[in-house]
Simulated scan of single mutants.
Amino acid sequence: MRIVHVSDCYAPRTGGIETHLGELTRMQAAQGHEVHVFTSERGPNDERHGSTEMHGAVTVHRLGTLMPMRAPWNPAAGFMAARLLDELLPDVVHAHAGILCPLALGVAKTAMSRGIPVAITWHSMLDRSRLVLAPWARLTGWGDVPAALSAVSRVAAEEVEQVYGGEVRILHDAIDQARWSPAPEAPDEPPPLRLVAAARLVPKKGLGALITAVAEAADDLPRGSLTLDIFGVGPDRKRLETLIRQRGVEGFVRVRGRKPAAKLLAEYHGAHVFCSPAPREAFGIAALEARSAGLIVLGRRGNGHEEFLQSGVDSILVDDMRDMRRAIIRLATDRARFRELRDRARSVTPDFTYERVCEDTYAEYERAIDLARSGIRLP
């Protein structure tokens, strides 16, 4: 099968959709498919304007251009993508969408106008954008598209249904669970309670609120009870480091930049709790990696990570950051509760492998092919 994936964002940018798409395309190519990626993301050496590179057996087409802050956008990308579709004649186009994804939805529309089967997966919450997107979908014909629609979690799928209508199935993200596994031996018990977080350093991830919660929890605990290491890169780093200094917690809270997977796993093996403070998370690949590595996950309710977390069993899910502060204090002081959650997290692994998700993805492609046969096309 010739498969074209379309994503506005892609490596070298880091994030959940980039991680998932990189692994999914690698596995599809290993299974014998011809796999292409169209992206507006420039390459590590500013490759752009239709430049092509190979990621193993996957062909990546860089359709971006020079934009401020490396924004993954190019007004001419749609025209380049249309020419590529006519050259490649793919069996299916798989668009990976978020709130702002002009390339993904634009190429999906072009493919549908040509009768090419299309699957669209949403990897983010739509939130308030639904107020604009819903009437836009009705006016432009997107409310009844001949495409297989999916989202990475139930909460995300519900929002997509509110905008686009029709059936929206669940197509989870996945991880390499052979890599993300617990250490043979658990780390020493607290104190200190070693907290970690890993995310792109942007305001919506809630890392500033996490630093504040940890600082306030430390005020209510004996000295040396907590540490917090934050891993990731992004434009919010300076603000977070300033907040750490303002709160006077430089001695036990650090922003440590991006780590390769193997080194990040080693950090997890020496930690106790993974913190996911984002108020709106469609899935949470970083939380799944940490949970599979044997960490207790501390996160927010109403997010996509409820697909693989059981609050009170292997994790603690809270309503707000005040509750997160209380949960941190309890984990640092209630040894029996800590052991109960830790032992469950280390002994039971969620089943979110790429092997399973690939099967679900191919089922979506079959659904897309059936819908394309209906003869309905977007103008």
Results as ranks from 00 to 15, higher is better:
V273F: 11
Y362M: 13
D188P: 07
D91N: 15
D323L: 13
D173P: 01
I17C: 01
A119I: 13
A178I: 02
P90D: 02
G251K: 11
A345V: 03
V60N: 00
R377L: 03
E359D: 14
F338H: 09
L193G: 12
I230H: 02
G115K: 09
V318L: 07
V92A: 05
E250Q: 15
V155W: 01
I99K: 15
L341K: 08
D188T: 10
V160N: 09
L89A: 08
Y362D: 15
V214K: 00
H61Y: 01
P68Y: 01
I17R: 07
M80W: 09
R344P: 02
K204A: 14
P379I: 04
M80N: 15
D360L: 07
W180L: 11
T110Q: 15
A215W: 05
Y365F: 10
D219K: 07
H36F: 07
D188A: 08
G56S: 04
P75T: 02
C275M: 02
P279D: 03
R2I: 08
L341A: 09
H49T: 14
V37P: 02
H49W: 07
I329P: 10
A104T: 02
A215H: 02
G16F: 02
S347Y: 06
L84M: 14
P203F: 07
A77S: 06
G143L: 00
R247N: 07
R138C: 04
G302S: 00
G56P: 11
P191E: 11
A209R: 10
W73K: 03
A104H: 04
G166M: 12
S7W: 10
L85P: 03
G16Q: 08
